[in-house]
């Protein structure tokens, strides 16, 4: 049996898909409408896995989890141009980049899911 706890946070970010090594015409042809700058309300689902702490009956203290997410995820990214922070902002690349950011402060992290729109969902699952 394994137990997981998931917290979802919202990040309002703007981005576009772009490879800086390519010309505008090549980017346009490669990424289509995603080359134009636009924004999303990303729903980021952060999942940790582990054992219930016998003292608190919690997998992890909610306030501690929320503080880590606020400091490492929401405050640095919310309302920002994500292309200024990450080298690529495809949903897949963001899921991995956010996982890498959070793995240090959240050693029990096993999955980052990103609902980019109602139609698009991306996920990175710990592969260690």
């Amino acid at each position: 049996m394994k137990m997981q706890l998931t917290r979802e946070v919202t990040i309002r970010g703007i981005h576009n898909l772009e490879n800086p090594k390519l010309s505008p015409a090549e980017n346009e042809s490669l990424y289509g409408i995603c080359y134009g700058q636009h924004g999303h309300h990303y729903k980021v689902r952060v999942t940790i896995e582990g054992k219930i702490d016998s003292r608190s009956s919690l997998l992890m203290d909610r306030d501690a989890l929320d503080r880590i997410l606020r400091e490492n995820l929401v405050d640095p990214l919310d309302g920002k141009d994500l292309n200024r922070i990450f080298s690529n902002t495809s949903g897949e690349a963001l899921a991995i980049a956010i996982y890498d950011r959070l793995k240090g402060p959240l050693p029990n992290l096993v999955r980052v899911g990103i609902q980019e729109t109602r139609k698009n969902y991306f996920e990175y699952q710990s592969q260690s």
Binding site: M1, K2, Q4, L5, R7, E8, V9
Partner: peptide, 9 residues
């Protein structure tokens, strides 16, 4: 809540 859940598998 909508933004907090536990899963057991």
């Amino acid at each position: 809540t909508d933004d907090l859940w536990v899963e057991i598998e």
